[in-house]
Design a protein around this nucleic acid. Structure first.
Length: 760
DNA sequence: AAAAAAT
């Protein structure tokens, strides 16, 4: 397909060949009547190869300049007047104005890669392009248009219209429904895959495989993947039934061999398995969780926790506490609606084995500074500039092994400083690897960081870029929802660290515009999430494109065996870390569950959201998130939404509105559940309870960051109490269930929480 | 259900 042609061109782009290309296109231009002026100096360049580089640079640059010139230089000047006043005059003095122009932009750009200047730059690039594709440029120039449109506020009022659009959206969601179809294709592909990593596939589908007809039957049965997931428990059920599976396990020894080099983790695990039966009683004691009875698998996992025995006693205490919890709210209600609960039981929430980790005691590492951990002065200064004077425990734990080049798995709870924990040593490592080498034009990236959402990728870049620039390394973001041109342009010039989301990364990879073959360090943030359906396979393909033996770093607040699919294939003797004493008892987050009548929900949300501090509201669907934002607006509370139905510009802008405090209420889907850091969110409201305990942990982790206080309120109906209890158990969270009606004091208390906190 | 590519 045409894509196959592109890679060739793209690869060539790294060498000088594209320049020939540029020259030819330049020569073409030269023949055009309109390009006379730039043509003259450039026409010499092909004949004087010695001068090729500078002149070739000049020529295309001038071409660009004249084009944008025509398209509206004045406007461009206006936009950049400040920067120009500072820098441009001097440089435009150079022989090669255009080039120096680029250079000028570069600082600006790298500066701005996050922010806006890049935008203005992009605009300029687009302008010439606009002639070619008016429609697109129109979309973009939407911006000016927007200003013209009082429409924004009008939109709000108009939202009926929007909601009308939304009615159209079902069509969209229909498209979404097509996706399953995609996954269908994928499934079809899988057979082919049996050749290679069939194992991950094996794992989930093994039972089904034997009965392949049944599989297809399942599929037709359920449009729902969630059914798949719910099958997992079933799977585990199969486990016990099936020697076959244990047989599979036996097959793994090959794999486990790889592993056995590693900490006895896997070993112990295996040793534990027999022991599990013995421990059943214990697990019963612990959880006496209803779910457990239903799900052998889970108790399995729990049993696996023997690892815990090694850990601080806290986990034990936890467990002792838990029975109390179940005493608490609503045991009688568990029996109240068994049907529903079994239905629900089939839903998502899978508890994987915990990774056995070396618990790093915060006390042992206090006192050590970043410099002591092996980071250079510039980086240490950059970290201080980011407000990180002293390493957090997770950082103290991971920096040294990462610098050693080890593969690392790290679990640190939300807001514990994971980004710096991998970002700083990653930069140091790349720096050391490049010591003495010049930064070449069009050099291929040496490090790759992947995150599940664009916002998170952006946020990571903000941190990592600050560190990287302190030592002269460049980062770029590669994520979807925005035009490729600027990203590709940055890659052409050469970057050291790529930060992005899997979709666009793979896209550019396939187009040959992104070369990962030089990547020495690959990071997966929210690694467990990246191993979930829909993410795992692209991530695997991307990781396979990195350099042989590249270092892999997997981070998440909820890191567990779910990452096994990646660990088995990509990690060698990984070091596994978590921070001792990081449990909910030591958390700064207070959890509350309000049991409400569904008919009161809207008004209760209104009263909760009507407050002073920053509030993040989670909804399950995009449509509901949008609806709630609208509802709050109509109730006189400024609110914006964040979800995947918005274009990237709106997403970015709406999140920024909360960050900057222009609004205090953001209603989001789970796109904002993981990783997003907004400094002072003190209340998280779950308008819809999450289905997975991990989701609960991540959502609630948007508050209480870096030791601040925060409150999480979850609204549920009576029917949901049992599920909620189970979920909180898995999350190891204690939360009172409070029957709540409109006008109850608890609503006032929660809405005013920030004020009372300030006084205390 | 959501997210992640673009069209």
């Amino acid at each position: 397909m045409p894509k196959n042609k592109k890679p060739a061109g793209g690869r060539a782009a790294k060498n000088f060949e594209p320049r020939y290309g540029a020259q030819t296109s330049f020569q073409d231009r030269k023949r055009r009547p309109g390009a006379d002026a730039p043509a003259k100096p450039g026409s010499k360049s092909p004949t004087h190869r010695g001068y090729r580089a500078p002149e070739a640079d000049t020529a295309p640059a001038k071409r660009r300049w004249s084009a944008s010139d025509r398209a509206g230089r004045d406007e461009a000047r206006g936009i950049r007047s400040n920067a120009r006043a500072d820098e441009r005059p001097a440089r435009s003095f150079d022989d090669r104005p255009a080039r120096s122009f680029d250079r000028n932009d570069r600082p600006a750009r790298s500066f701005d890669r996050n922010d806006r200047p890049a935008r203005s730059f992009e605009r300029r690039d687009d302008r010439p392009a606009r002639d070619d594709r008016p429609a697109r440029s129109f979309d973009r120039s939407d911006r000016p248009a927007r200003d013209d449109r009082p429409a924004r506020s009008f939109d709000r009022n108009d939202r009926p219209a929007r909601s009308f659009d939304r009615n159209d959206r079902p069509a969209r969601s229909f498209d979404r429904n097509d996706r399953p179809a995609r996954s269908f294709e994928r499934r079809d592909d899988r057979p082919a895959r049996d050749d290679r990593p069939a194992r991950s596939f094996d794992r989930s589908d093994r039972p089904a495989r034997d009965d392949r007809p049944a599989r297809s039957f399942d599929r037709s049965d359920r449009p729902a993947r969630s059914f798949d997931r719910s099958d997992r428990p079933a799977r585990s059920f199969d486990r016990s039934d099936r020697p076959a599976r244990s047989f599979d396990r036996d097959d793994r020894p090959a794999r486990s061999f790889d592993r056995n080099d590693r900490p006895a983790r896997s070993f112990e695990r295996r040793d534990d398995r027999p022991a599990r039966d013995d421990r059943l009683a214990r697990s019963f004691d612990r959880s006496d969780r209803p779910a457990r009875d239903d799900r052998p698998a889970r108790s399995f996992d729990r049993n696996d926790r023997p690892a815990r025995d090694d850990r601080p006693a806290r986990s034990f205490e936890r467990r002792d506490d838990r029975p109390r919890r179940t005493d608490g709210p609503n045991r009688s209600d568990w029996n109240a609606s068994p049907k529903r609960s079994t239905e629900h039981e089939q839903r998502v929430d899978v508890v994987h084995e915990r990774l056995q980790a070396e618990a790093v005691d915060a006390a042992t590492v206090t006192g050590a500074g970043f410099a002591d951990l092996g980071l250079g002065d510039n980086i240490v200064r950059a970290l201080a500039g980011l407000g990180a004077e002293k390493p957090f425990p997770i950082q103290a734990a991971t920096v040294a092994p990462i610098l050693e080049g080890r593969d690392v798995l790290a679990r640190g709870r939300t807001g514990s400083g994971k980004t710096i924990a991998f970002g700083a040593p990653l930069v140091e490592r790349i720096l050391r690897a490049q010591a003495g080498q010049r930064r070449e034009f069009a050099r291929a990236p040496k490090a790759l960081i992947m995150a599940p959402t664009r916002e998170l990728a952006l946020q990571i870049d903000r941190t990592v870029q600050a560190i990287a620039r302190s030592v002269g390394l460049f980062t770029t973001q590669i994520y979807g929802g925005v035009p490729q041109a600027r990203q590709v342009g940055a890659l052409r010039k050469g970057v050291d660290i790529v930060i992005g989301t899997p979709g666009r990364i793979e896209d550019l990879l396939n187009q040959g515009k992104l070369d990962l073959s030089q990547v020495q360090v690959a990071v997966l943030d929210e690694a467990d999430h990246m191993c979930e359906l829909g993410f795992l396979e692209p991530v695997q393909r991307i990781l396979r494109a990195t350099a042989e033996g590249s270092q892999k770093l997997l981070f998440s607040a909820t890191l567990d065996r779910e990452v096994a699919a990646l660990v088995d294939e990509f990690l060698v003797e990984p070091a596994v870390y978590e921070v001792a004493g990081e449990d909910q008892d030591s958390s700064t987050i207070e959890h509350r569950v309000l049991v409400i009548e569904h008919r009161d929900k809207a008004q209760i949300l209104d009263s909760l959201v009507d407050r002073e501090g920053k509030t993040l509201v989670f909804a399950r669907t995009r449509a509901y998130a949008e609806m709630l934002a609208e509802q709050f607006d109509e109730a006189g509370i400024a609110a914006v939404a964040l979800h995947g139905d918005l274009n990237q510009q709106k997403r970015t802008r709406n999140l920024e509105k909360l960050t900057s405090g222009r609004v205090n209420v953001l209603v989001a889907t789970d796109v904002a559940a993981r990783g997003i850091h907004v400094d002072d969110i003190d209340l998280v409201i779950q308008a819809d309870a999450p289905d997975e305990y991990k989701t609960y942990l991540h959502r609630s982790g948007r508050t209480g960051r870096a030791g601040r206080r925060g409150t999480v309120v979850t609204l549920i109906t009576r029917q949901r109490q049992r599920r909620m209890t189970e979920l909180l158990d898995r999350a190891e969270i204690e939360a009172p269930f409070e029957p709540t009606q409109l006008g109850d004091d608890v609503l006032e208390e929660l809405a005013g929480r920030q004020l009372s906190d300030v006084t205390s």
